[in-house]
């Protein structure tokens, strides 16, 4: 099979799918031209991600990666969400095919973009270099390697 059982489970029964009308931070990454876009909604209270939802346009691994990423950050402090790596998402999914690794990078970037939006909206200072500017490799290339 192309995908692991965990990937298929998260693809067929995605967790935290949907939108949050009163989100504190929203991040959207990817490129429809390349075939995947992720949009992440965060509800944050006292530095804790109390709720998270996602919408994804993309293949099975893109939907599964989004779903897994939301599970991994829900209930966690924002600082932990920022530390979420695509590698951790891949491991939690029981692996992804090499040509699908960019989906996990998109998931990591979507979380970070949503946190950045939260920081921006709340006037919280941060180092811009730490965030995707919406124009990095993951938004354009499909050959991002596991790092």
């Amino acid at each position: 099979m192309l995908y692991s059982e965990t990937v298929m489970d998260h693809f067929q029964h995605p967790r935290n799918v949907g939108k949050l009308d009163d989100a504190d931070g929203i991040g959207e990454v990817g490129n429809a031209k390349c075939g995947d876009i992720m949009k992440m909604y965060l509800k944050i209270r006292d530095g804790i991600i109390v709720d998270v939802k996602f919408n994804t346009f993309g293949c099975g691994s893109a939907i599964a990666s989004s779903s897994m990423a939301t599970e991994m950050i829900k209930g966690k402090p924002v600082s932990e969400a920022l530390a979420l790596s695509n590698k951790a998402v891949v491991e939690a999914l029981g692996g992804l095919p090499a040509h699908k690794l960019h989906c996990s990078v998109l998931a990591e970037e979507a979380v970070r973009a949503a946190v950045k939006d939260y920081y921006d909206k709340n006037g919280i200072a941060y180092d811009p270099a730490e965030f995707c500017n919406g124009d990095c490799a993951c938004c354009h290339e499909h050959d991002v390697q596991q790092n």
């Binding site: 995605p14 876009i37 992720m38 994804t56």
Partner: peptide, 8 residues
């Protein structure tokens, strides 16, 4: 489409 940001 329901879960697609592009459709939205």
């Amino acid at each position: 489409r329901e879960i697609s940001p592009v459709w939205e």
